[in-house]
Amino acid sequence: MIVAVASGKGGTGKTTVATSLVSVLGDRAQILDCDVEEPNCHILLKPTILTTDTVNLPVPSVDLEKCSLCGKCGEVCQFSAIVPIGKTVIAFPELCHGCGACSMLCPEEAIHEVPRNLGVVETGMAGPVEFVQGRIRIGEAMSPPLIRAVKTHIRGDKLAILDAPPGASCPVITTVKGSDFVIMVTEPTPFGLNDLGIAVEAIKGLGIPMGIVINRSDIGDSSVKDFCDNRDLPLLMEIPHHRKIAEGYAQGKPLIESMPEYSDKFRKLIDDVSMIFGKPSKGSSL
């Protein structure tokens, strides 16, 4: 089973929930941090990194001796990443989306592909938990190919927990696509509600079942609960604001270390999710 933890609004406790889930599951789980712009799971789980692989995007390089200046590459490129001009052809690798159209369609076979570094995928172990994360190179804009590279590490025989980026656009969709369930973490404020609504809309389109976790459930108002009622979204868990949790988080301490009594609640959360998904979970407390 693959469970993505998403949020719409950032800073609502998505990483806290994802890391708590794998902590109670132990060796039956793997965690994949798909928030490649700002991966934070490692701060709470402190994994030992065992492998680091660079992820590249193929971008064009032009052999001007073979080039006949026909202009085809510039015509097919939708991103202004390759431009025939004057008596030359210029490639702008940072604008390239790596589709391969220019090299494939060049009649002179004058274009070959060279790698552009997008970032790295790291794997390792956090105690008994298998750990995978992507880290985008600073200055690089294109995260979806890197997220896809992280997701190639999903194994069928474990419960895979994906920590999604905040928001509701392409990086989130790339992450949650193919998941069996999405846990949405939010906070009961107007911002939390607004962004939850957007994220729920985005994921609804993919047809994946969802459930809600309300973090800091005693701040703000009741509008998120009303939203869950109206949309028939299961409210999976509420985590009240607690100074011990906030202080622990500040120092990079996982929630179930600050508040051990939450272990059972997270086990129940996994059972509830498995139930909704309609399969007994491999990871539950049995």
Binding site: G10, G11, D35, V36, E37, E38, I136, I138, G139, E140, A141, M142, S143, P165, P166, G167, S169, P171
Partner: peptide, 8 residues
Amino acid sequence: PGVGCPVI
């Protein structure tokens, strides 16, 4: 938020 496309 982040460091990617919309931030840049």
